[in-house]
């Protein structure tokens, strides 16, 4: 018997009206595994993360996190829609970093990082601040604790956002095109932080990215999405080195040509 996956998508579908964004997705992600999702825009890759973060409802199927359903509860052996308490309990295992940072603009970097630990986890303010200071130090922003988001560069804001998510001690981190909104010269500093996270922490990481080089170097597995399905997946060497699927080849060719 294999180890229970950290996350399991079990025949998950997502539709907007008549448009099917995800079509019966099956995907297991192991504990500590680093998985990159690539694919053309509109292929449903961001939706995968958003569903796992409960930002989108799902139409069919079940998402399991450490063996427990995310948006369902087991009642008399049946799965019924979960209540808020259940969703919040499971959701606490997951953190997310967004393309557009989404820092709270009226709060300093420090305040952004302690808001949830204090109000959700009930941490003492001093403890939360000590922990946030460590995290801001780790992302290289120890000197910027008192700065507001508008006083920080895009790369710095995104690093604060990573620290803010980590402050909740998630087991799973989701990265949704976290470098897409950045000027090219700021991409490196953010990727370096993610690289360090991968090395030093036992986090399960799932990222949607257009940085093929980074996906290749960082991931344990790469999934190529096309039209709401996983078209091909495998270790980065195989998927980038010798893609089996014609669509994958076309996509990689187009992206690598351009970039």
């Amino acid at each position: 018997m294999t180890e229970q996956p950290m996350v399991r998508f079990d025949k998950v579908s997502k539709r907007y009206g008549s448009l099917t964004v995800l079509d019966g997705l099956d995907l297991d992600i192991g504990r500590g595994e680093k998985v990159s999702i690539i694919g053309p825009s509109g292929s449903g890759k961001t939706t995968v993360l958003r569903m796992l973060m409960t930002l989108e409802t799902i139409n069919d199927g079940v998402i399991w996190v450490e063996g427990e359903p995310l948006t369902h509860m087991q009642k008399n052996g049946k799965l019924v829609p979960a209540d808020t308490a259940h969703i919040r309990r499971i959701r606490s295992k997951i953190g997310m970093v967004f393309q557009s940072f989404n820092l709270f603009p009226h709060m300093t970097a420090m305040a952004n990082c302690i808001e949830a630990p204090v109000t959700v986890l009930g941490m003492k303010r001093a403890d939360a601040e000590a922990r946030a200071a460590e995290l801001l130090e780790m992302v290289g922003l120890g000197q910027k604790k008192g700065h507001y988001p508008s006083q920080l560069s895009g790369g710095q804001q995104q690093r604060v956002a990573i620290a803010r998510a980590l402050a909740m001690r998630p087991k799973i981190m989701l990265f949704d095109e976290v470098t897409s909104a950045l000027d090219p010269e700021l991409v490196g500093e953010v990727l370096e932080v993610i690289r360090r996270l991968g090395r030093e922490h036992d986090l399960t990481m799932l990222m949607v990215t257009h940085q093929m080089g980074f996906a290749k170097e960082f991931s344990d597995r790469v999934c190529f999405f096309h039209q709401g399905k996983i078209c091909e997946q495998g270790p980065p060497n195989e998927l980038f080195g010798a893609p089996k699927n014609e669509r994958t080849r076309q996509f990689l060719h187009a992206v690598l040509e351009a970039g």
Partner: peptide, 8 residues
């Protein structure tokens, strides 16, 4: 969305 992701 950030508020949801932080479980507020």
């Amino acid at each position: 969305e950030a508020s949801i992701a932080l479980n507020l």
